[in-house]
Amino acid sequence: MAAKRPDLVTIADVARHAGVAVSTVSYVLSAKRTISTATRERVLASIATLGFRPNAGARALASRRANVIALVLPLRTGMHLPIVMQLMTAVVTGARGHDHDVLVMTADEGPAGLRRVADSSMVDGVVVMDVEMSDPRVPFLRELRRPSVLIGFPADARGLTCVDLDFHGAGARCVEELVALGHRRVALLGAPAVVYARGTGFAHRTRAGFLAAISALGVSGVAEPCEEDRSSVSATLRDLFRAHPGTTGIVVHNEAAVEHVLTLLPSMGRRVPRDVSVIAICPDEIAARTRPALTSVSIPAEELGRQAVSLLMAKLSGATPSEATLLAPALTVRASTDHQR
């Protein structure tokens, strides 16, 4: 009889070859129970002879885990896909570092999707993205037997494990920088209107931080949603300067609109940074490649993904991690800001 391909050899084949129970092989693989030296060596010899490669199924048998986590990432209107992909890649890379695979769920199924995957025993835990202030998934996550971590914060985060950039602090930090440069009239061009309408947490928190800072620092400011296409950005800027002609500092929290803002301002007679200083809340690679390069508060997608996975793995191991992890906003000064003259 022809030998099996190594990738087709099962844990049962190893047990049969070594003359032991399947559970004994799993204990040798997982090291979760003491096995006699002679038996262990016999099992290892069979593994070597058959070319057995422990896979997800074998690990699951050994640990009663699927070694898979779910990433719940509903793709919705107004989401900036490059950022989404960075976060997803960071979660996948982090999971692989813990010997886990990732099941990505992109359909906008709400609590029903979470229930379906949790009830199937396909995953050990769940990472949830695009969190809303009044997220309908939150009550189910509190009752879910499997551990979960949210990248983002709902309005009420009690009983949940959440990690995110401190977007409230990011909005405030941008205002503080502009005011330190002498600007007295500032504006926030935020996410598309649909993002605010569905209550997405990061957008509302940035806006709240921006408004709180202008009030605390005694400057004038306005916060407006901003669409992503060039014509809409142009209309938003024209409306802004028509209603608030003295605006000299702009914060952009809309990655897709950033380059449009920078190219449209000179056509409106406002040079960057001589006439208008611009700060963005966006990934560093976006800020560094624009002309002029943007002063920015970085969105640390890689760190967010890594921390989310680490928190989930800690919960899987029985630990009780901190419920709230907020990454402090870091502002990098580049060429798009200048002292108001």
Rank of each mutant, 00 (worst) to 15 (best):
G78A: 03
G78N: 02
G78V: 02
M79F: 15
H80V: 10
L81N: 06
P82F: 07
P82N: 05
P82T: 02
V84E: 10
V84N: 05
M85A: 14
M85K: 11
Q86G: 11
Q86T: 07
Q86M: 13
Q86P: 04
L87I: 14
M88F: 09
M88C: 12
T89K: 12
T89Q: 14
V91C: 02
V92C: 10
V92I: 13
V92Q: 13
V92K: 07
T93I: 10
A95C: 09
A95H: 03
R96T: 12
R96E: 14
G97P: 02
G97D: 09
H98Y: 11
D99Y: 12
D99Q: 15
H100T: 01
H100V: 00
H100I: 02
H100A: 03
D101Y: 08
D101C: 09
D101E: 14
D101I: 06
V102Y: 00
V102R: 01
M105F: 10
T106S: 10
T106W: 04
T106A: 12
A107F: 14
A107I: 03
D108F: 07
G110Y: 05
G110C: 08
P111V: 05
A112W: 04
A112M: 11
G113M: 08
G113I: 08
L114A: 04
L114K: 02
L114H: 02
L114I: 15
R116Q: 14
R116I: 08
R116C: 09
R116T: 13
V117E: 03
A118M: 10
A118F: 06
A118N: 11
D119W: 11
S120I: 06
S120L: 10
S120D: 09
S121I: 10
S121R: 15
M122Q: 14
M122N: 12
M122I: 11
V123W: 04
G125H: 00
V126A: 09
V126C: 09
V127I: 15
V127D: 03
V128S: 00
V128T: 06
M129F: 11
D130W: 12
D130E: 15
D130I: 13
V131M: 08
E132L: 15
M133N: 12
M133C: 11
S134T: 15
S134M: 13
S134Q: 14
P136H: 11
R137I: 01
V138Y: 02
P139W: 04
F140R: 02
F140Y: 13
L141H: 01
L141T: 03
L141K: 03
L141Q: 06
E143N: 07
E143T: 11
L144Q: 09
R145I: 13
R145K: 14
R146A: 14
P147T: 00
P147A: 01
P147S: 00
S148D: 07
S148Y: 09
V149I: 04
L150V: 03
I151T: 06
I151D: 03
I151A: 08
P154G: 01
P154R: 02
D156M: 10
A157L: 09
R158D: 13
R158H: 12
